[in-house]
Design a protein around this nucleic acid. Structure first.
Lengths: 138, 138
DNA sequence: ATCCTAGCTTAGACTCTGTCTAAACAAAGA
DNA sequence: TCTTTGTTTAGACAGAGTCTAAGCTAGGAT
């Protein structure tokens, strides 16, 4: 059913009912939820689920590398279950809608050696901003 | 003295003593401070300065387009006074050190039309991550 | 000069997001 | 069964930022 659960199990990570509900909630959507939104939705299926478990579980999934943590607006973090595919994000300045996108080139290539300040540059992510179709009229 | 103050004045924005201290604190450094760090440093020069004024002033400078707000770690926002020069950021995964960098290509060019989902894409920013020279040994 | 008004600043209360703690609980092995 | 280890829970706590109501300041009108 849930591909994320399969990936998590590979890490010898115990899949409890709570963790399963959280993983399925995360994966079941194509928008990227905040922890609070995941809590709300997961609680619809398992009302005793606590806030602490949701935060703990999300942090562990991030630590395992199977979920990506996005800090895009400085308020709350969002969680992206597609940690295995390289992708970037497109955000609407009007309504905050977020889409996953793919570029045709790797940005790390564009950073000249003399701009690297001695760093080893491992990865990069691009945030594109603009207006979505609905917000362009306004 | 402060170029940011000059730019702000152009917007017919009243430069009060408090605002001047905040702008000069922001511009006087090449690292990007959080609001709390700016408060701390600005208070060294003007002890009565209040937290609310710092937050209000930073938000207004962002709204005027003269300062950039960076949400890079999901905890606190950082403020970048170089809103007029296109640049990106390089962050160390080890210690959090952040550098401004310049790329040789514009990411917006590399986002194919069919990946734009009908958006008008106005700008983009790249966050590069890796290890700084000091953290590579560890 | 005095008054008025608009805008600026302030302290502190409040909200929101996330973390920590201590206790209860569950599962697996000896 | 007992123990050990890991998980979940409620609620207290902490950090970052916003809001509110009151006071302050500067500039214009009289």
């Amino acid at each position: 059913m849930s591909d994320l659960v399969t990936r998590l199990r590979r890490h010898n990570w115990r899949i409890t009912p709570q963790r399963r509900v959280i993983a399925e909630t995360l994966e079941g959507s194509h928008v990227h939820f905040t922890a609070e939104q995941i809590l709300e939705r997961a609680c619809a299926r398992m009302p005793e689920l606590s806030r602490a478990t949701v935060y703990n579980t999300l942090n562990e999934m991030v630590a395992l590398g199977e979920v990506l943590e996005l800090a895009l607006d400085g308020r709350s973090k969002r969680y992206d279950p597609n940690a295995d595919h390289e992708h970037h994000h497109l955000i609407c300045d009007g309504c905050g809608l977020m889409k996953d996108v793919h570029t045709v080139a790797d940005p790390v290539e564009w950073l000249p050696g003399d701009e690297r300040h001695g760093f080893t540059v491992a990865r990069s992510s691009i945030t594109f901003r603009g207006l979505c179709p609905d917000c362009q009229g306004a």
